[in-house]
Simulated scan of single mutants.
Amino acid sequence: MLFKDRTAAGQVLAQKLADYANRPNVLVLALPRGGVPVGFEVAQALNAPLDVLIVRKLGVPENEELAMGAIASGGVRILNQSIVEQIQIPDEVIASVAAQQQRELERRETMYRGDRPFPDLKGKIVILVDDGLATGATMWAAIIAVRQKQPQEIVVAVPVAAPETCEEICSKVQKVICANTPSPFYSVGMWYEKFPQTTDDEVRELLNKATNNHQPLLF
């Protein structure tokens, strides 16, 4: 399955999440930036509020696409010990990369949320959405961050994922939906016809649009 773009991927994903439509305790949390266009379509289809959870990959110096870990809002930091040990990455290098990504995480928090507080997740069904899963490091950090907020259920939903990563995430949450698990996988972008960088302005525009469109359910 090749998705036209993130919007089309979100529409496909939304169909697979139809059981969660029009439920007052459902919240869609998208991982910026690429997960937001996908999450927007899911939230619209489910008539659920949309928000963001900021997560940053800790890339290996000289090979930043390779994740040695990730950080997430709420002070979460995870490390891929096998990568760290295999490449023998010193602690001071990890600390430096983490500090740099923490600054970017805080910048995005301010940019996307401003003074608006992080949503209350206690007792909620939280659907974590991204545009794809490669190593799963950022999603794992997101899961840990959400768990701290005592949700009723965590659902991970992505249009495309490496088969082994999808399987691994299945052991960490109540439900996982990977619409496409191609093998060999190569990269997330390989499975989209159009895969441009999502901008900060696009993220803010979609969040504002989702807020204006959402009709709270009164039961």
Rank of each mutant, 00 (worst) to 15 (best):
A18N: 07
A67S: 11
Q11W: 05
T7E: 05
L66M: 12
A45W: 09
N25M: 06
K16M: 15
A134I: 03
Y112W: 03
V36N: 11
E85V: 03
R77L: 10
V203D: 10
I83M: 11
E153I: 01
P151L: 09
M190N: 13
E164G: 04
E109M: 07
C166A: 15
K4Q: 12
S171M: 06
R103F: 00
V126Q: 02
E109A: 06
Q152N: 12
Y20N: 09
Q174E: 13
E109S: 05
T199H: 07
K149C: 12
P32T: 02
A72Q: 08
V129R: 06
N63W: 03
A162N: 09
M139C: 00
K175S: 08
E85K: 15
R107N: 13
F118V: 01
I177W: 03
Q101T: 01
A99K: 11
V28H: 01
P61T: 05
A67E: 00
G34E: 12
D131S: 02
G75W: 14
L133A: 09
Q81T: 11
F219A: 15
E62S: 14
D120G: 03
A43F: 01
F219I: 10
P24N: 08
A161D: 03
P117N: 10
R103C: 03
F185H: 09
S82A: 12
P216S: 07
V60R: 05
R23L: 08
W191H: 13
R204T: 13
I154R: 03
W140V: 14
G39F: 06
I127H: 02
T135S: 14
G59R: 13
K16W: 04
F195D: 07
R33A: 06
T199I: 04
L27K: 07
G189P: 08
V158T: 10
V146G: 00
D19Y: 13
K149N: 10
A162D: 07
T211P: 01
E85C: 04
A8H: 15
L79E: 09
E193M: 14
D91P: 06
A43E: 05
D120E: 14
L2R: 10
S187E: 03
E106W: 04
S82V: 08
A70I: 02
A45L: 06
L206N: 14
R77A: 12
C166V: 02
Q15L: 08
T138I: 05
N47L: 06
L207A: 01
E167H: 10
Q101R: 13
A45P: 00
A99N: 07
V84Y: 07
V146P: 00
T135P: 05
A179R: 01
T135M: 09
A98I: 03
V156S: 04
G74Y: 04
A98N: 10
K149Q: 15
Q152P: 08
G34W: 07
C170H: 10
S187P: 07
A161R: 03
N47A: 08
G136C: 01
E92D: 14
Y112G: 07
A137M: 14
I154F: 11
K4G: 00
I54W: 03
K172E: 13
Y20I: 09
V60T: 02
G59I: 06
V97R: 05
H214W: 14
Y20C: 00
R113C: 06
Q215M: 15
A14V: 09
F219G: 13
E164R: 12
P196I: 04
